[in-house]
Design a protein around this nucleic acid. Structure first.
Lengths: 179, 179
DNA sequence: TTTAGATAGTTGCAAGTGAGACTATCATAG
DNA sequence: CTATGATAGTCTCACTTGCAACTATCTAAA
């Protein structure tokens, strides 16, 4: 290995935290960066399941997850809103899932602009097969935490989500296009 | 508003959690989804600062953040590794930053494949101006948590990061291309 | 009824990004 | 010295996705 500057990583050069003028920022202690990195890593860990195994991408998986959890069928817009995914992304995901006959849609007589989406038998089968795998993965990822710590983590996430108004309420539902 | 199925969101239809066959998955309790959503939201909140105000995108900001925190100059590869960003992305960010004269690079006599990157005076000025804004934003986002809760949250994040080996050690540094 | 504005969903376009090929350079073994 | 393999950085390609325009439909008000 060449005697270069790339040898010491992350741990190196951390002493001089407060510089002469202005404050420095340690990327590794910066929560936004950490969240991004962690989310990317967790996603990639899960994608092994739904992507490689079942050929689903994230938006498609979100559509199935929403349809699978709800009892009533729902619209694409609904899925877009409550998963906070852009409606065009959801639209493409639904199209793909319909092509694969995982999802079907029926016209809504009351409002012919929107469609009721629901999983087909085939889609339900895939869903039933996929869910336990994903839950297992989630548990694996969280296995480094104790039961209490997992609870705490979920609570803390919830507080931040609430403060950022990430959690949809019934009132917000069909509110606006630009959520 | 049309009397459609899109009225009740997130709170609705949550009763039937355990279905007849197989378990359901509540997307809103599923940590991977929550992390993704939260990270996206936090990123977008911060992008107001570095993007709209200073015309930086995330990779460019990561380059500056890494260069600004370290005392020694470092290589593009180093930044790619410890920020877990693809080397081609970092390469493009460095190119853009050099065009704007925020960053300069000097050849490394010991290894002429790599370059030492460091911020210019102009880059440092931008960095000094940006950091306090970002730290303020981070505090705003975390302001819904008490001091103790912030600590706990950081600790829990750390545990998960460690278990996923997200935190680079000196040993991993120049290890492989496919991190 | 007519008109203006809002909404559901689709699509074209452009920007960003990862994968992987490619060049140049370095290290090591023979 | 030479050959092989690894590494730093760049570049092309393909894919994804957000944005915004567009169509069709609905609501509400004049």
């Amino acid at each position: 290995m060449p005697k270069a500057f790339s040898s010491e990583v992350a741990t190196g050069s951390r002493e001089e935290n407060a510089s002469k003028k202005g404050s420095k920022l340690d990327l590794f202690r910066f929560v936004p960066f950490r969240l991004n990195r962690l989310a990317a890593e967790v996603s990639s860990a899960l994608s092994v399941e739904y992507q490689e195994r079942y050929g689903l991408d994230i938006p498609e998986w979100r559509v199935l997850a929403t349809l699978g959890f709800r009892v009533e069928p729902c619209s694409a817009q609904y899925i877009a809103h409550c998963t906070r995914t852009h409606k065009s992304t959801i639209s493409r995901a639904v199209t793909a899932l319909m092509k694969r006959q995982m999802v079907e849609r029926v016209e809504n007589a009351d409002d012919r602009r929107e469609f009721a989406l629901r999983m087909t038998r085939k889609g339900k089968a895939l869903y039933e097969e996929l869910i336990p795998r994903l839950l297992r993965r989630e548990q694996e990822i969280l296995s480094c935490l104790s039961a209490q710590e997992r609870k705490d983590f979920a609570n803390l996430l919830g507080k931040i989500e609430n403060s950022l108004e990430l959690v949809q309420t019934a009132k917000d539902a069909g509110a606006t296009d630009a959520y």
